[in-house]
């Protein structure tokens, strides 16, 4: 006891070396903080500053000539509001369905009595590391009639094996008595799954839901590969297209009608902000959950 007290006293006192270390550490991490946060901050102040000043690079630390026209106008561009709707819809529906199917599958894979469970489980897990490839997937989805429909966003990504493993591992760490007692009370598999297991798995479901939602929201390649109908474009894809136009004309694009009165930079930055803001708003709340998810995921590869 006496010894323990001694280190505690020692720990609280800052020695000269400690002090130097903290100065160094705060400097390094302060720098890292700025490097990570400043681009987002810069993006935000540019979208609300005078567009001409932004183009001339006069905005650095503080916004100037504050206005919200960019946001108002971007929202009025017909195809963009539609894309926003598509992005939100696929994120909500895709994440919701994926959570249901993934956790359902995870629950039944925890049941050791299942016929040839190991075999089926491996068959599923292998698909994380092995795929037929992009073109075969394209041909397959075409055969299934999914290409160029809204469902191409939802159905192929219904089951995420990685997320399934996370949920399964989490369910397995639950005390078995809980299910056992419900079983003795006559509850079947489905009742136990819905009433006992799911309510206790909220943290991991939040994590998996975040992964899935971010994946849906951020995806632009599915649109690029499978979708030609502009009514089905997602917001990310619109941004990608816009960037491609800029690239093609080496940043000299002329503004077209729907974007009139907006500078190309203004549109691009505002669209970028519109895509980033929802993520920035949601993820800090789920942060406390996903640490656990990452741990389980790393253990399982």
């Amino acid at each position: 006891m006496a010894k323990e007290k001694k280190y505690k006293v020692k720990r609280k006192k800052m020695t000269g070396g400690d002090f130097a270390f903290h100065i160094g550490a705060y400097f390094i991490f302060g720098l890292i903080l700025i490097i990570c946060a400043y681009p987002f901050y810069y993006l935000m102040i540019c979208t609300i500053s005078d567009n001409r000043m932004v183009d001339l690079g006069q905005i650095r630390l503080l916004p100037s000539g504050i206005h919200f026209d960019n946001y108002v106008k971007v929202m009025k561009v017909q195809n963009l509001t539609n894309s926003f709707r598509i992005s939100v819809l696929r994120t909500v529906i895709g994440t919701g369905l994926s959570l249901i199917v993934t956790s359902y599958m995870a629950y039944f894979f925890t049941k050791e009595e299942m016929w040839a469970r190991k075999f089926w489980y491996r068959l599923v897990v292998v698909t994380m590391y092995f795929s037929a490839g992009m073109i075969p997937a394209y041909l397959n989805n075409r055969m299934l009639g999914l290409n160029n429909t809204f469902w191409i966003y939802i159905v192929p990504s219904l089951i995420s094996v990685y997320n399934m493993i996370l949920v399964k591992t989490s369910i397995e760490s639950m005390p078995p008595d809980l299910e056992e007692s419900a079983y003795l009370d006559g509850a079947g598999f489905f009742t136990r799954f819905v009433r006992i297991v799911l309510p206790l798995q909220k943290p991991i479901l939040a994590t998996v839901g975040l992964f899935s939602a971010v994946g849906h929201w951020n995806d632009f390649f599915t649109t690029q590969l499978y979708v030609t109908n502009p009514r089905l474009y997602t917001l990310q894809f619109q941004l990608y297209e816009l960037l491609n136009q800029i690239r093609a004309a080496s940043e000299q694009i002329t503004t077209e009608d729907p974007y009139a009165k907006l500078t190309p930079t203004g549109i691009r930055l505002t669209l970028t902000a519109v895509v980033v803001i929802p993520i920035m708003l949601v993820y800090p709340f789920i942060q406390k959950y996903y640490v656990k998810g990452v741990m389980i995921g790393a253990v399982k590869g």
């Binding site: 991490f29 681009p39 540019c46 971010v214 995806d219």
Partner: peptide
């Protein structure tokens, strides 16, 4: 530090490109 440095992980490569062009 943890919260801020994790944020970039959640943005897409399209956004990364847009931010890179901006910077």
């Amino acid at each position: 530090v943890q919260t801020v440095t994790t944020l970039p992980n959640f943005i897409s490569w399209v956004i990364m490109f847009s931010l890179s062009v901006t910077i």
